[in-house]
């Protein structure tokens, strides 16, 4: 990048820097060029810090076993191979696991959006006794580390029951562990993974919308539920999109609840990834951790791909959505 480019940059970047004090133009220009070079260095450096390990992982996933022990190989494999990907594909059972995972995270996300927007709307627009205290409780659910409630929740779903009704009828309680039902239940009742945060986002967003919209709807004869589903939920699209992205990404990456409820690994891609190395060492009889790690790298590449695609598709809406959704307020 030559200096003229950088200067062009700068002129676009900051009108703020122009002062009223009279300084010689050359000094100013030298300063601006220096400043933009400084910025460029920082941005490139920070980007490298983030991307470096990722590039390392991706390039390592193409390494063949001989490359691992060749000290002259760095980043670019001498004899690239797709062997690792093949192995990761079979051991992850990729397509089937991915399919189940997608169904799972998309349905959870839809429930999150529906429930959290409802609750957020309730907090934003209605007056009822103890409202402040209850909203304080929402904040508490954001702040409270999940591990403090993990044992009782584990036991709760281990012996799941509604007020003892099921036990009275069938004589024993239901074991909901080793399936995804606990997560669905918790999400349905607004206490899923980071639901508190989503409630907060929606509440802030609804508070920012003008009340006239609802008043007009009410005058036109729409009931409160009708107004909510037909009008308010549509207007909340920016907030809904940022919640959707966050929810999908975090649900996809969640290991805590997946481990706690011992969800089936055949239906959870990231959870399955965490056991892939052991599987490969055991099933494929590759005892060398350096080499089985290669397949893990390939697995990571495979696991990151879908979420990257989702992110790239939604990223434009996502950043805009956050800017408009009023996390800020």
């Amino acid at each position: 990048m030559n200096i003229r480019d950088v200067r062009g940059y700068y002129e676009k970047i900051s009108e703020i820097a122009s002062d009223v004090t009279f300084r010689s133009r050359t000094l100013n220009k030298a300063k601006s060029v220096l400043l933009s070079i400084f910025k460029l260095i920082i941005i490139v450096g920070m980007s490298y810090i983030i991307l470096g390990p990722v590039i390392n992982i991706v390039s390592n996933s193409f390494f063949s076993p001989s490359d691992v022990y060749n000290p002259s190989v760095f980043m670019i494999p001498l004899s690239p191979t797709l062997e690792n990907f093949k192995r990761a594909f079979t051991r992850l059972n990729y397509w089937s696991t991915l399919g189940y995972t997608m169904v799972y995270i998309v349905s959870i996300t839809l429930i999150q959006i529906l429930i959290c927007s409802m609750v957020g709307y309730g907090f934003a627009r209605f007056e009822f006794p103890l409202k402040k205290l209850l909203f304080g409780c929402v904040i508490v659910t954001i702040v409270l580390p999940a591990h403090v409630i993990m044992l009782p929740i584990y036991q709760h779903f281990r012996m799941w029951d509604i007020f003892g009704i099921i036990q009275a009828v069938t004589g024993k309680t239901v074991n909901l562990l080793s399936q995804q039902t606990p997560m669905y239940l918790m999400t349905l009742f607004g206490t899923g993974l980071r639901s508190g945060l989503y409630i907060y986002i929606f509440r802030q967003f609804f508070r920012g919308l003008p009340k006239e919209i609802e008043e007009a709807a009410l005058i036109d004869g729409a009931g409160i539920w009708h107004t909510y589903f037909r009008i308010m939920l549509r207007n909340a699209m920016p907030a809904a999109i940022s919640v959707a992205v966050f929810s999908m990404v975090w649900q996809y990456n969640d290991m805590f609840y997946a481990r706690l409820f011992s969800m089936p690994t055949s239906k959870n891609l990231t959870f399955r990834l965490s056991t892939i190395q052991a599987t490969i060492e055991f099933v494929d009889q590759i005892k060398d951790p350096m080499i089985s790690q290669l397949a893990v790298y390939a697995g990571i590449t495979l696991v990151l791909l879908p979420i990257l695609i989702i992110y790239f598709v939604l990223q434009k809406y996502f950043v805009e959505g956050i800017e408009r959704s009023g996390i800020v307020g």
Binding site: V119, F126, F128, V138, I153, G190, S195
Partner: peptide
């Protein structure tokens, strides 16, 4: 209106009481 508002936050309230 207060009742409707409570109805809106009901799912969360149940979850909060039962799970938290």
């Amino acid at each position: 209106r207060a009742a409707t508002g409570l109805l809106f936050i009901l799912p969360w309230l149940i979850g909060f009481l039962v799970y938290y």
